[in-house]
Simulated assay, not measured.
Amino acid sequence: MVAYTEYTDQELSSLLQQGDHAAFTEIYNRYWRKIFVVAHKRLGDQEEAEGIVQDLFLNLWRKRESFRLTTGFQNYFAIALKFEILDVMRKWANVSKYENELSFTYTEADESMLRSADLEELRQKIQLTISALPEKCQLVFRLKHEQGYSQKQIAEELNISEKTVEAHLAKAKKQLRGKIGGLLELILFLCF
């Protein structure tokens, strides 16, 4: 019997389409380090690079039955990695833009109101509002803001999709904005 390490990319691809776990493991072992090194070099962020590697292989496994390899896994991963890196950079650019907009949103009156506000009273109001949320929504919010989990970590911890995590966070923030007002992000930053 031929060892998986001796199979070509095309042979591994065929086995992958059949759901062969050992073929998938061989593909992972051959390429994960190369993908990680390139992602880390381009982004300068180890955690993001690890996340990209996981996402690429997870997507490959999910699409295994319809997956068709045309040239080789080296080319496939190079192209897929390029798009993943662009997505991360777009996300970073949007966050940076949002932070810049947020910094110009607050007026001196807002700052003086915050200085005079009793943070403990705000914390209590936030906790009451959070406690009134549905259980899963409350758990997602607490993991994000009290425990510092990323949305991806929350999704993995609770075995739900990242889109579901986003929906729970949006619902929680909507409720909090209704009770606290437009300075929610700044207040959350100060209170958590």
Results as ranks from 00 to 15, higher is better:
Leu56Ser: 03
Ala117His: 04
Phe104Leu: 14
Gly19Ile: 12
Thr107Asp: 03
Phe77Cys: 06
Glu99Ile: 08
Arg115Cys: 09
Leu114Phe: 07
Arg30Asp: 10
Ala78Val: 02
Gln18Met: 15
Arg90Tyr: 05
Leu12Ala: 06
Ile27Val: 14
Glu121Ala: 10
Phe104Gly: 11
Leu119Thr: 10
Gln46Val: 07
Leu15Phe: 12
Lys82Cys: 02
Asn75Glu: 11
Glu50Ser: 06
Glu48Leu: 15
Lys91Gly: 10
Leu56Phe: 07
Ala117Arg: 11
Tyr28Ser: 07
Leu56Ala: 04
Gln54His: 09
Leu86Trp: 08
Leu56Arg: 03
Asp45Gly: 01
Asn94Gly: 00
Thr105Val: 11
Ser13Phe: 06
Asn100Tyr: 11
Ser13Trp: 07
Lys91His: 11
Ser14Pro: 01
Glu50Pro: 00
Glu84Phe: 01
Gly72Val: 02
Thr25Asn: 11
Leu122Pro: 01
Ala93Pro: 00
Ser66Phe: 06
Ala109Thr: 13
Asp87Val: 00
Lys97Glu: 10
Trp92Thr: 02
Leu15Trp: 10
Arg115His: 12
Ala78Lys: 10
Asp20Ser: 05
Leu86Ser: 09
Lys82Pro: 02
His40Lys: 15
Gln18Phe: 14
Leu15Gln: 12
Lys34Arg: 15
Phe36Pro: 02
Thr25Leu: 15
Trp61Tyr: 12
Asn100Asp: 09
Tyr28Gln: 11
Ile52Gly: 03
Glu101Cys: 04
Asp118Phe: 10
Phe83Pro: 00
Gly19Glu: 10
Val88Ala: 04
Gly51Pro: 01
Thr71Asn: 12
Glu50Phe: 04
Arg64Glu: 08
Phe77Thr: 05
Lys63Asn: 13
Lys63Met: 09
Phe67Ser: 03
Thr25Trp: 10
Gln74Gly: 08
Asp118Gly: 03
Arg64Gln: 06
Arg33Ser: 12
Val88Asp: 00
Gln17Pro: 00
Ser13Val: 07
Val37Ser: 09
Ala117Lys: 09
Tyr31Asp: 03
Ala49Leu: 07
Lys91Met: 11
Arg64Leu: 03
Lys91Cys: 02
Arg42His: 14
Asn59Tyr: 04
